[in-house]
């Protein structure tokens, strides 16, 4: 039977009270911030990395809409890099439905997007992987 698997529980928080989800970066005492969680800070090798919730919204730095996706993913598929005010850049799928032209019209560089949780891929048995996505505001 098909299952849903939530990926990245250490970097994606889906609040139980129905509040909107957000991402969690990790801040090192040396001042660097990392996403996702790393075992050691690449800057100073400290293992004392503290969770740092990121803002729920960020700016779309750049994006693409792929017509030839990875095997098992549906095209057209949009994804892009979003810059968060905390100084971290994250790449994820962008939740816009429709054909290429519809998606092209819906997206532009520097637009605000918010973090959402959703299905990012399905395996051949229909098992769904749930993780973070971005949604135009």
């Amino acid at each position: 039977m098909a299952e849903q698997v939530v990926f990245h529980p250490d970097i994606l928080c889906i609040p139980e009270g129905g509040e909107k989800p957000y991402l969690i970066a990790y801040k090192c005492s040396c001042g660097s911030a990392w996403f996702p969680k790393l075992p050691f800070c690449p800057n100073c090798w400290s293992d004392k990395l503290e969770p740092m919730p990121l803002s729920r919204t960020g700016k779309l730095y750049t994006y693409t809409i792929v017509a030839i996706p990875q095997p098992g993913l549906q095209a057209p598929l949009a994804y892009g890099f979003v810059n968060f005010p905390e100084g971290v850049s994250v790449c994820a799928q962008i939740d816009v439905q429709g054909d290429l032209e519809t998606i092209q019209k819906a997206l532009h560089i520097d637009m605000d997007v918010e973090v959402a949780a959703g299905v990012i891929r399905k395996d051949k048995d229909g098992n769904e992987t749930i993780s973070y996505r971005f949604k135009p505001i």
Binding site: F7, H8, P36, Y61, T62, Y63, T64, V66, I68, P69, Q70, L73, L77, Y79, G80, F81, C91, A92, Q93, I109, I120, R121, T129, S131
Partner: peptide, 27 residues
Amino acid sequence: AFAPDSRDPEGLQGATMPGIYAMRTRR
């Protein structure tokens, strides 16, 4: 399309090499 390892956080999200260069092109 060539893609990064699917265990890679960007790879898991569906990133492909053409997609990464497309993002550079657009910016």
